[in-house]
Amino acid sequence: MSESTEQKNNQIEEKPSNSKVIKKLVLLVFAMFGFGFALVPLYDVFCDITGLNGKTNDVGVAYTAEGVDTSRTVKVQFITRNAKGIPWQFEPVINEISVHPGEMKFVNFYAKNTSQRDIIGQAVPSVSPGIAAGYFQKIECFCFTQQPLGAGEEVEMGLQFYVDLDLPTEITTLTLSYTLYDISGKVDS
């Protein structure tokens, strides 16, 4: 029925055939399904540019700052948290330091596995305000790798970083938060 009507219509005005339209629409459906998944990497790119979710770089960067801006001082605060179910003691050795933009700093974090089993931990960083995340450059960080700790073992873990010279002037305090997750289960498999 539809095709016969269509033929009749086609004699009067040019219309694309049903199957052509359907093919295009189905293609659009699959494209949009793919787009849903493409949003995942797109979101990461978007966050990198805008600091939307306060994520910082997850591989080390080289120190590239041109000099140190001693006219400005930025407070950097460190916060640690244990995600549910990881029986570690985990805290910054110092809570807060002052840095000049461009100046390289090294700080330590203390961790101890207080349980009686071996656990692999993974620290996930988040910077607040989010907009500052793009200016917080980590040269070396324990969060780049997994941290296996045996029962009762303790460790001091290092973070080497600097703050970009072009950090917006209205930002005077940066907070870096680490959440520690137990990823033993995920690593085993």
Partner: peptide
């Protein structure tokens, strides 16, 4: 609607197949 299908699929794999689309730990 395909985007909804996509997001519920991610939900499914996050819940049952160990992916970490929405899990900060991963």
């Amino acid at each position: 609607m395909p985007v909804l299908a996509g997001v519920v699929t991610m939900l499914l794999t996050d819940t049952y197949f160990g992916t970490s689309f929405f899990d900060a730990a991963g």
